[in-house]
Simulated assay, not measured.
Amino acid sequence: MRSGTQKGAALLTAIALSTTMTAARAEEPTSAHELDPVERAEVLFTRAMELSAEGRETEACPMLEESLRLDAAMGTRYRLAECYEKTNRREAACRLYTEVAREAQRAGMSERESRARLRGEALSAMLARLVVWVPKEVAETPELEVTIDGRPLDREAWTGDPLPVDLGEHVLEAMAPGRKPYRRVVPVHDTSVPIELSVPTLRAQNEAPKTRRAEVTIPSTNRSTETEAPSVRATVALVLGLGGAGALLASAGIAAAALATGGLSEPARGTSAVGIGIGGASLVAAGVLWLVTPPAKARREGGAAMAIVPTVGPLGGGASLLGRF
């Protein structure tokens, strides 16, 4: 009796467990490997649209990317462009809108073509431009590949076609088998001025970099020093100045002594006047000579110069001002 009771309990337990497992298996979603690519793409697209409706574009975009990879449907491409636009990936959105417009034109879908083209053009006006030049001798490199941000650049764009890009840093790369790759990071901060880039010749892998020759500067042995001796005219100006000042002081001393002894006699007055005249003329001549004497550097370089030359004639004397300009 006990044995019969145990068998019955075990049977009931097995039935219950089997029922539970069957119900759980029925609730499980169909495994991904049981769906073909198009069906998987449809599932991802539907879920991405639900997330987008909730404002969760950052989660929706990767699902749309995978859906497009599995099934390159025009509608998926258009919705992915919208997702990129909402997440400020304007260049990618513009590119996808352009692709949709071309595909819709081929399919005769004028309304979708017009809508995609208008949205692409609106985004294009907000983008910066890169202009990539690949010189002919560089373009002839076997199996050369040029990329912008890891995306291959068509050969048609190697001749200076403006490429729309987002603001920020971008990476230009060029590579070829057996050649050292070229890489340049380009910061872009302005949408008004295109940035021009050129791809240089790629060196061979075993080619040593060019060494720069050391440059040695040998000082000149015949160059005048800054402490150059004064010129003759400067010396004459100094002597005249000192002599003129001395004549003025002497004349003033004679006049003062004559006045102190009872008056300024005729001889004293004449001597004083002559001294004052000579002293004044000497000072004026010294000043003129000093002003017209060129600096040492100007004399070396043959610059402008002036000179006063005394002259004597039958009717008297004078001075002539000569110059070089």
Rank of each mutant, 00 (worst) to 15 (best):
T225K: 14
R184C: 13
V216K: 08
E173C: 13
L153E: 09
A174M: 05
H189A: 12
D149M: 08
I218S: 06
H189N: 10
E143W: 06
V188K: 01
H189K: 10
R223Y: 05
D166H: 04
A157F: 11
A208M: 03
H170F: 01
R223Q: 11
A157E: 12
E156W: 02
A157K: 14
Q205V: 13
P187F: 00
T211A: 12
T225N: 09
T211S: 12
V146T: 09
I218E: 13
R213T: 10
A214E: 11
R203N: 05
I218N: 08
A214C: 01
Y182N: 02
P194M: 10
N206W: 07
P181V: 04
D166A: 08
P200Y: 08
P194S: 11
R183P: 01
L202M: 02
V199C: 12
G178V: 01
E173Q: 14
A214L: 09
I218R: 14
T201V: 09
S220F: 04
V165M: 04
P164Y: 07
G168E: 02
L197G: 03
H170Q: 03
P200V: 07
A157N: 14
V193R: 15
V146A: 07
H170M: 05
T147K: 15
R212H: 00
R203A: 12
A229M: 05
T201G: 03
E215V: 11
T211P: 01
P219I: 05
I195R: 14
L172A: 04
H189L: 08
T221H: 03
P219R: 10
D154L: 13
K210H: 11
T211Y: 01
D161G: 08
R183N: 05
V188F: 02
P200R: 09
R179T: 04
P187N: 00
Y182F: 15
K210T: 14
T201A: 13
R223K: 11
D166V: 04
I218L: 15
R155D: 08
N222D: 10
L197E: 06
A204K: 06
L197R: 06
A214G: 10
H189F: 02
A204N: 08
I195F: 04
S192Q: 13
T147W: 04
V199Q: 02
V165F: 03
L144R: 11
D149Q: 07
N206Q: 11
T201I: 10
T217W: 11
T225R: 14
S198A: 13
D149E: 07
E140M: 14
T191V: 15
A157Q: 12
E156T: 13
L167R: 02
L172S: 04
D190V: 03
K180C: 08
L197D: 07
A157R: 14
V216C: 00
T191Y: 05
P152F: 03
K210A: 13
R223I: 11
L163I: 15
D190C: 10
T147C: 14
R213W: 04
G178Y: 04
S192R: 14
G178I: 00
V171N: 01
T191C: 15
S220W: 01
D190N: 15
T191I: 15
E140F: 10
E145W: 05
A229W: 02
P152Y: 05
Y182E: 01
V165K: 07
L163V: 10
E169V: 07
E228V: 13
P162F: 02
L172I: 05
E196N: 12
E207G: 06
D149V: 06
P209C: 00
T221G: 00
Y182W: 13
